[in-house]
Write a protein that binds this DNA or RNA. Structure first.
Lengths: 218, 218
DNA sequence: CTGGATTAGTACTAGACAGTACCGTACCGT
DNA sequence: ACGGTACGGTACTGTCTAGTACTAATCCAG
């Protein structure tokens, strides 16, 4: 009731919009300083929230970290996959694949996503489930979707392949690997330009088509 | 004097064989617990050495870590490259490439190497030079060597390619990416069997040859 | 054998951090 | 307006760790 009175963000279920603020702050700090480099005081401070409040919403540092990574990975994964569904064929195979490759590579190469990837890899021993989650929602999901698309293209004679899943893996990594692996070791130093990324995407597509394309189509 | 008395390894320049013991212990502990998960006391304890001695040989925790990673990466890199030089052609291109691919993939997928990779990636923000070193001595060195080999093969008409360096990158990641990226996120859980690795290596080689091979040679 | 250096052992300093306790206040549904 | 819940602020506990200080035992060369 009470007519008009949204101060800023009162629309939330009043109590636990703090939760969101805390997660936001946690994301910033964890991504910047890593798991052990981050203190709960720092998160509370950045969230402009009492430490007690943090512990009311998340029992543990581990819990907070875990939930943060899980939700972040899910968000990104969903965003990438909205775009991925736009891979409908216009008849021009190379153009369609290149367009998708460029978009996907750009998504994966965002600094925040790269940093999250480094973080999850670095903590893969301490948090095995997080590693698994990242892999399932990231590479595996992408590759699976690609595999079904490729299977259809093969059925229509546009591609030649015996194993769509394997071909999807090859395609995925032909496009991503070089920039991604390089970026893993260079912490935000010397980032690749967007133009370079597009070139890598296109080059990967060309190799894939040279290997699996059929002469009749281009 | 006292005639017979090699307890174990007296051959070293007496004083700084401690150094070696410390590095050995540091390797074990750092690889198991990460940089911040490791205490100097633990290293000293495992090395059966006083903490004072550790600090006599390495001014810092950072120094110790840094030197450890650098030397370890160099060792592995050298070992891999001895094998790499054995890629002399016997005339059968696919066989030669497959043999090299299998050996190299197996080297990179050793648990200790994987763990080191995770560690360096996770600390890439804190230790940028280590990331750079790993990348230079690892992927970049391998790819560079491959590029010169491919350039020769192209000159002799065995391969078709405009850009040997790019082709080398593609070849390298066609073989490594799928197992390697998967392994990054699964901390020693669910390791791939040697048979699976060989299959990945062979499949990568086949795609590469389908894209860059010349009809006359196989 | 002897003198100088290295080492083990241990205790200590100083700082950081996860998690808890407590108190007074602000918010919220009713 | 009321009563309970959430919140801010702050102080506190317990623990851990990098790095240092100091002494006594040990090693090694000449």
């Amino acid at each position: 009731m009470t007519s008009v009175r949204e101060t800023v963000n009162e629309s939330e279920p009043r109590a636990s919009r703090k939760r969101h603020v805390i997660l936001q702050a946690a994301r910033t700090v964890f991504l910047r300083n890593g798991y052990v480099g981050t203190s709960m005081d720092e998160i509370a401070g950045l969230a402009a929230v009492s430490k007690q409040t943090v512990y009311k919403h998340f029992t543990d540092k581990e819990c907070l970290f875990s939930e943060l990574v899980t939700t972040t990975v899910s968000e990104i994964s969903d965003r990438v996959h909205e775009e991925l569904l736009n891979l409908e064929d216009s008849g021009k195979l190379e153009e369609d694949l290149s367009a998708w490759a460029r978009r996907t590579l750009a998504s994966v190469m965002q600094p925040a996503v790269l940093q999250l990837r480094r973080l999850v890899i670095g903590e893969a021993t301490r948090f095995p489930e997080l590693g698994r989650t990242f892999y399932e929602l990231g590479p595996r999901r992408t590759i699976e979707t690609l595999a079904t698309v490729f299977a259809q293209l093969a059925e229509r004679g546009v591609l030649q392949l015996d194993d769509p899943a394997l071909a999807a893996e090859h395609f995925n990594w032909l496009i991503m690997s070089a920039p991604l692996n390089r970026a893993m070791f260079f912490g935000d130093d010397q980032p690749l330009a967007a133009g370079d990324l597009d070139r890598y995407a296109d080059a990967g597509v060309r190799v894939f088509i040279a290997a699996h394309g059929t002469p009749g189509h281009e």
